[in-house]
Amino acid sequence: MTVEPDTLAAPALSGSARPGSGRASLRRLGELAQQPVLVASWITVLVVIGWAVAPRLFTSYSPYNGDSAASFAPPSAEHWFGTDRLGRDLFARTVYGAHTTLTATLLAVLIAFGIGTVVGLIAGFSGGIVDIAVMRLVDVFLAIPSLLLAMVVVSVLGYSTQNIALAVGISSIASFARVMRAEVLTVVNQDYVKAAYGLGGGRPAVLLRHVVPNSLNSVIALAALEVGTAVLAVASLGFLGYGAPPPQPEWGLLVAEGRDYVATHPWPSIMPGLLLALVVVATHRISTSYRKEHRR
C-alpha cells in the first residue's frame, strides 16, 4: 500500500514551504512530464492566451465579415467550428473572442479576489468592532441577489463585456470576504499559530507567515471557480438579453446567442461551450497542482 505523501503530511508548522531553487524547478519539470493531464491543461491555457494576444496567427478568417453563401455551415475542415447565421467563421469568432473574454474574466477575478480577500483578512484578523462593521456590510451585499446587483451595475454603466465583468466582480466580493474570514478564524485558532505567538512572533509576522498563506487555500479554490463563474455570468446576462454590443465576439455571448438554433444547428453554441468548459477545467487543474506544490 502506498499512501501519497501529501495527504499524510503534518500541518506546515514551519510555514517556509516555497520551492523555487533551481533544483526544485528541474524536479517540477520532471514531474510535469509524468502528468499528461496537467501538461494538456497548460497547453490549453497557453493556446487560449495566444489567441487573445495574437488572434491573426491562429486563423485567416475575419470574425466580422461573413460569407452570406455559407450561412450555418456545419463544422468541417474549412470551418472547424462551422459558421453562424451570417456565414461568419465560428472558430475565428472564438479565437478573436478570447481577448474580450479573458480580459473580462481577469477583471472580475481581480476585483472579487483582491478586494474580497483583503476585507475578509482585516475582518477575521482584527476582530472586535472592525470585524462586526465589515461583516454586517458584507452580509447586506450577500443578502441582495447578485443578479440584481449585476443588472443594476450594467444598466448604469452601459452594455459592454467589461462592465458586466465589473458587475460580476463587485457582486462576488462579499462571498470572497466571507470565506476568507472564516478561513482566517479557523487558522488563527490552530495550535501552530498559537505556537507561533508563543515563540515570540509579532502580529504582522504571524499574519504574513502563517495566517495569509494558510487561509488563502480555500479562497484560491474559489478564485479558480470564479474564472468560470465570470465567463458564465457574462453568458447568463447575455441569455437574459444583456450583452456586449455586436459584432464583437465573446464566448459567453456566442453560447447564449447560439442557443436559439440548438435544435437545428447546435454548433454555434456547443462548440464555444465545449471550449469554455475545457478552459475552465484546465484552469482548475493548474490551480490545484499549484496549490499542492505550495503545500509541500
Binding site: A224, L225, G228, T229, L232, A235, S236, F239, G252, V255, A256, R259, S269, I270, G273, L276, A277, V279, V280, V281, T283, H284, R285
Partner: peptide, 11 residues
Amino acid sequence: PSGAVSVPVFL
C-alpha cells in the same frame, strides 16, 4: 466541480 460550473445553466 469545475466541470459542473463550466457549462452555462441555460445550455
